[in-house]
């Protein structure tokens, strides 16, 4: 009887530990007007989860005479469709141009919903997606299940480059940068003075580092800081009107690198480094512990190889 109870309890315990299967809901992206003919579609400041359908990155919609301009198509076909409908409703014109700021799938996987638009990215982003797209697709379907239904990666045209583009009367200054990834496109909308920074800039949400090149990232932040703008749309987190987000991103990245190098220097292993105290000035930053844990995975072996001396010589 006791053994039987054990079996029953074991069976009861299972659904608690197993991930809930869950069904996909419907995306309902909302737009916030942030200037003349420009809207921010904010993502949730969370990890990719079934509860948010992967809608965690910020997108931007702009009006132009030639059709709506969309920056970052989101995580899935379903999200892309909802975003395209929202763009048409706000601007009165269907999307005609999409910019993909960088390779990561929370920004680049909704493009199939924009079949009538030109989809542009930096050449490096196209190359990155040719390499990593299939792996991203596997990971996104595993994490988000039904939310991903019908999603196929559409590779962007590698047509974006440093310089001014005028599209439907709207002047956009494109900046070809790198550091968060091998290709990071930032866009200054001259009419509204809005700097659309992609994932080079995070705001009150911890930066992610899976493809980071830290020196290049700092150089890119310096160029963004030197670009006059009225407001900045970060890749994740709220609109920044006070020019704090660029500095905050740089501050986090410097702290991260210094702390992890010191951790290697004091003999800590990865798990201990992921449990390092996070300074009080980052207390309001969403996902800080989560992203520190991820960054330890991305960066720690690199610092160990650099700092631990050879002992076989």
């Amino acid at each position: 009887m006791i053994a039987r109870r054990g079996v029953l309890l074991g069976a009861l315990a299972l659904p608690v530990i197993a991930r809930a299967q869950g069904f996909a809901g419907a995306y309902a992206p909302a737009a916030i007007a942030i200037g003349e003919g420009i809207w921010l579609v904010p993502g949730a400041d969370e990890a990719l989860e079934p509860s948010n359908g992967g809608a965690i990155a910020n997108s931007v919609i702009m009006a132009s005479d030639a059709g709506a301009i969309v920056v970052d198509s989101g995580p899935s076909l379903g999200f892309g469709k909802a975003l395209a409908a929202l763009a048409e409703q706000l601007t009165g014109k269907a999307p005609a141009r999409v910019y993909i700021t960088h390779l990561h799938p929370d920004h680049s996987f909704g493009s199939a919903a924009f079949a009538r638009a030109e989809i542009h990215s930096l050449p490096a982003t196209r190359t990155d997606l040719e390499r990593d797209g299939a792996g991203f697709s596997d990971a996104m379907y595993r994490l988000l299940q039904g939310w991903m239904a019908g999603t196929e990666l559409i590779l962007p045209q590698p047509a974006a480059a440093d310089g001014v583009v005028t599209f439907g009367g709207r002047r956009l200054r494109l900046m070809a940068l790198s550091g968060h990834s091998a290709g990071d496109l930032a866009i200054l909308d001259e009419a509204s003075g809005t700097l659309i920074a992609g994932d080079l800039v995070f705001h009150n949400r911890a930066p992610t580092t899976p493809h980071a090149d830290l020196p290049a990232w700092h150089a890119a932040l310096a160029r963004l800081a030197a670009t006059p703008h009225r407001q900045c749309v970060p890749g994740h987190g709220p609109l920044d009107r006070g020019s704090t987000a660029i500095a905050q991103t740089g501050d986090w990245l410097r702290w991260l690198e210094d702390s992890l190098r010191e951790a290697v220097g004091s003999g800590l292993d990865m798990a201990e480094a992921a449990n390092l105290p996070i300074p009080a000035r980052f207390a309001d930053m969403a996902m800080a512990r989560y992203e520190l844990t991820r960054s330890v995975s991305h960066l720690y072996p690199r610092f160990e190889a650099e700092l631990l001396p050879r002992i076989d010589g």
């Binding site: 990890a47 899976p210 292993d269 990865m270 798990a271 201990e272 992921a274 449990n275 512990r289 989560y290 844990t293 991820r294 330890v296 995975s297 991305h298 072996p301």
Partner: peptide, 15 residues
């Protein structure tokens, strides 16, 4: 000690 998420299934730290 196991990490709060497995960022890389090839390299999962365990203490």
């Amino acid at each position: 000690a196991l990490p709060m998420l497995t960022e890389n299934q090839h390299v999962m730290p365990v203490t």
